[in-house]
């Protein structure tokens, strides 16, 4: 049907996925998160960007930890990667709770969640 696309798709679908595949996903998530942090003016949008960045890093940790994705004779991070991913998730939860509390406090005091308006300390 599509002679130009078909070999690439075929090779992607018939070969097992490796660490690189996961790294690409992680890179896209990370970049989206950074862009989100830079672009959004809503404080909660910035928070969502942080979650995406942490998640992108987590994808990398899990990919390196996975024994499924390694080359022949390759050595995975094993449990270390998974444990680090767990700690990242926990700390992300803690970070979100504090950031949300700060945002709500900011909203209570300034009646806005626009981070560009948080310039009280500007000289």
């Amino acid at each position: 049907m599509q002679p130009s696309l078909s070999p690439l798709v075929a090779s992607l679908l018939t070969e097992p996925v490796g660490v690189t595949h996961y790294l690409v996903v992680g890179a896209i998530l990370f970049t989206a998160g950074v862009a989100c942090m830079a672009v959004k003016r809503n404080a909660l949008g910035v928070l969502m960007g942080i979650e995406l960045v942490l998640n992108g890093a987590n994808v990398n940790f899990v990919a390196f930890a996975s024994p499924y994705l390694q080359a022949e004779g390759g050595k995975s991070l094993g449990l270390d990667g998974q444990a680090i991913a767990l700690f990242v998730i926990l700390l992300a939860a803690a970070e979100a709770a504090v950031a949300l509390a700060i945002t709500l406090n900011f909203y209570n005091n300034h009646a806005t969640v626009d981070v560009d308006r948080a310039d009280d300390l500007k000289g």
Binding site: V17, G18, V19, Y68, Q70, A71, G74
Partner: peptide
């Protein structure tokens, strides 16, 4: 090495 995983591991 990251691009060529062993199949069926």
């Amino acid at each position: 090495e990251w691009r060529k995983p062993a199949a069926g591991r």
